[in-house]
Design a protein around this nucleic acid. Sequence first.
DNA 1: TCTCTTGTTCCGAA
DNA 2: ATTCGGAACAAGAG
Length: 277
Amino acid sequence: MPELPEVETVRRGLNQLVRGKKITSVTLDYPRMIHSDLSEFKDFLTGQTIFDVTRRGKYLLFDLGQKTLVSHLRMEGKYLLFETDKVPEDKHFHVRFALASGETLIYQDVRKFGTMELIDSVALSDFFTRKKMGPEPIAAEFDLKTFEDKLSVSQKKIKPYLLEQTLVVGLGNIYVDEVLWCAMIHPSEVSGNLKRAQVKRLRDAIISVLAEGVKRGGSTIRSYKNALGLAGTMQDYLKVYGKTGEPCARCGTPIEKYKLGGRGTHFCPHCQKLKKF
DNA sequence: TCTCTTGTTCCGAA
DNA sequence: ATTCGGAACAAGAG
């Protein structure tokens, strides 16, 4: 479930804990998750210093100078930090970075869906361009006109389209339902049918809901807190996700759930009406 | 045993 | 060309 707010929370925690620290060895227990050259991965990382941990969309970026370690948590990836002599046993620990500080940074992933790859830092922007990633969901980068133009020429349903990460990055299944409720738009609405005012509301909702998620440290749903601050409180402020049958916070109508694009989709049938002809 | 879960990519069918 | 549905990736919860 890590969406942008959760990844940003992890990023901040990692920066507190490992920025400036040197990697003394790397242990790989699930090589399949490494999507770049395997031997280079181990050889290069040993001896590198983590200068900074940044983020682009849902990708965590460990800045090592010449190269950048790009990490995606997918469904359940987590980072944990232990003193090296106190690392517990766990069959879901897949990558271990021993640090010169006497600590070990561990990547844990029950689903094994997460990925890591080593990319030349100068090739990072190309990497994201190839993935057709949209702008970050902040006012300065998320241009309304561009958003409006893309939506206007598409017949795609708005929720699956927002999940593609091409219009804007950072939304996952939880926040996208929250955003559409906030903007009072039906998840199945055809993108090209949205009025200017709706598109503006949608952009504002994307920016504000994700910012609120970051402010509250992300949401902790079906996941346990860990060393890197994933004990967020946003789950207590969600309006529709997981609220099936509960009254809408705006109008009291029971929240409904249906399947859209293979995903559980929550909405208020009164506030979010589908435009019909 | 069966169904559901979330992010992303990919494939084949409308 | 565009959109859609489903599969795949893996494992656990109910």
